[in-house]
Computed example of a mutant assay.
Amino acid sequence: MAATLKDIAQKAGVSTATVSRVLNHDTTLSVTKNTRDSIFMIAKELNYKRSSKKTNPSFQKRIALVQWYSEEKEQDDLYYMMIREGIEQRSQTQQFDVLRVFHNNIDNIRNYINGIIAVGKFSDDQVQVLANMTNKLVFIDDDQFYNGYDCVVTDFKMGVKRVINFFMEQNIPDIGLIYGVEETTDGKRIVEDPRKVAFEDTMRQKNIYNPEFVFKGDFSKESGYTQMKHAIEELGSNLPHAFFISSDPMASGALQALQEANIKIPERVSIFSFNNTSLTDFVNPELSSVSVATHSMGGTAVDLLKDKLENTEHTAARIELDTKLVFRKSTNQE
């Protein structure tokens, strides 16, 4: 039996989408030289032959994956990397070619695409630039539904509420928050953290909200470290017994600050993070985190775009995906 892309992917430990792009010499794919070399070597070992069958015409459709971060920033934020992988994997099954564009450098994709999936946060001006290129446009992680666009978002409110309920069940009413604020790459839109909004609403409903326990950062590990240090210094013995932190990188920085202050986790302070990237397993203690369906977000966006391309009666949709709590050693589970 002839070797397939799936055979190569399993042996190389990567996705079939990655194998396809490497074998097609896609220079925009962000993988290491060792990974590329390994894929070519495995393909040779398995005597992989490309199919001589005619390609389905839909395979010629090219979609642009426009990411608001730079390539370097993506390497530091596994959340968006996982969404991208979901897009690439579903695109291969739907026979779409994917062109990646970083940091809104979109001039080179004019007239060469059938549709756009925009990942991240975009200002009105940036949205208009994309819309001027094509009306086949889907957003991920940016709620553009009320502007008439398809979008795939996360149910932040329920995820945060579940975390607060968990702490309350453990008789921990003093819950702190470290959250992030972002702005679009053109600086024209400040993006409020929806987790902060959900946290404040839920805590106020329970009459346990304390603004002194809330600290603002920027989603980086360094910011999480700095804000937790501020909390420790400013609150002293009044430091909350639990913190909800808006991202895994911020939470890893907060853990470091607590450990430097000899504050035991979770005995004195419990930590619950958000996104559940692979980072949660590589810190000590491992982070409890709200799991976001990142791969499904990417795949769902591709399906929406496919329907938009093929269905003349397509109606704009806002798809909100649920989250779930994943418990690890940064919280007590008794």
Rank of each mutant, 00 (worst) to 15 (best):
F219H: 14
R268Q: 14
E222L: 13
E234C: 11
Q256P: 03
P240S: 11
L255V: 01
P249S: 04
L239H: 09
S252R: 01
S252P: 00
N210C: 11
H230P: 01
G224S: 06
Y209I: 13
K221Y: 14
Q256G: 00
M250I: 03
E234L: 14
P249M: 03
E234M: 14
G236E: 07
A231H: 00
L239N: 07
F243C: 02
G224L: 02
A261E: 04
D218P: 09
A242D: 04
Y209P: 09
S246K: 04
S246Q: 08
E234V: 11
P266A: 03
Q256H: 10
A231N: 02
T226N: 14
S246A: 10
Q227T: 02
L235A: 01
D218N: 15
N210M: 11
E222Q: 14
S220E: 12
A257M: 00
K221S: 15
V214W: 02
P249G: 06
G224T: 03
K229G: 02
A242N: 05
F213Y: 15
T226G: 13
L258E: 02
K221P: 12
E267D: 15
K264E: 12
H230K: 15
Q259C: 00
N262G: 07
P240M: 10
Q259W: 09
E260R: 04
V214I: 12
P266W: 01
N262T: 10
E212S: 14
S237I: 15
S220D: 13
M228S: 01
G224F: 01
A242F: 06
E260A: 01
F243A: 04
F215R: 07
M228C: 06
G236A: 09
E233V: 11
P266I: 06
S223N: 10
L235M: 11
I245N: 04
Q227I: 03
S237K: 15
P249H: 08
T226R: 14
K264G: 11
S220R: 14
K264P: 12
F244I: 11
S246G: 10
I265M: 05
R268V: 12
L235W: 06
F215L: 10
E233F: 12
A231I: 02
G224N: 07
Q259A: 03
D248K: 05
R268G: 12
T226C: 13
A254R: 01
G236Q: 09
Y225V: 09
N238D: 15
G236C: 09
S247D: 07
L255G: 06
F244Q: 03
P266L: 04
F243M: 02
F244G: 06
A257N: 05
N210F: 08
F243V: 08
D218Q: 13
A261M: 05
M228D: 03
A254D: 03
M228F: 05
A254L: 00
K216G: 07
N210Y: 09
G224Q: 04
Y225G: 05
E234K: 13
K229R: 12
M250W: 02
A242P: 07
V214M: 07
S237N: 14
A254G: 03
A261T: 04
Q227V: 00
I245V: 04
N262E: 12
A257L: 03
A231C: 08
Q259L: 08
A251V: 06
P211E: 05
D248R: 05
G224P: 00
H230E: 11
I265V: 05
A231W: 01
E260G: 03
G217M: 13
F243E: 03
I245W: 00
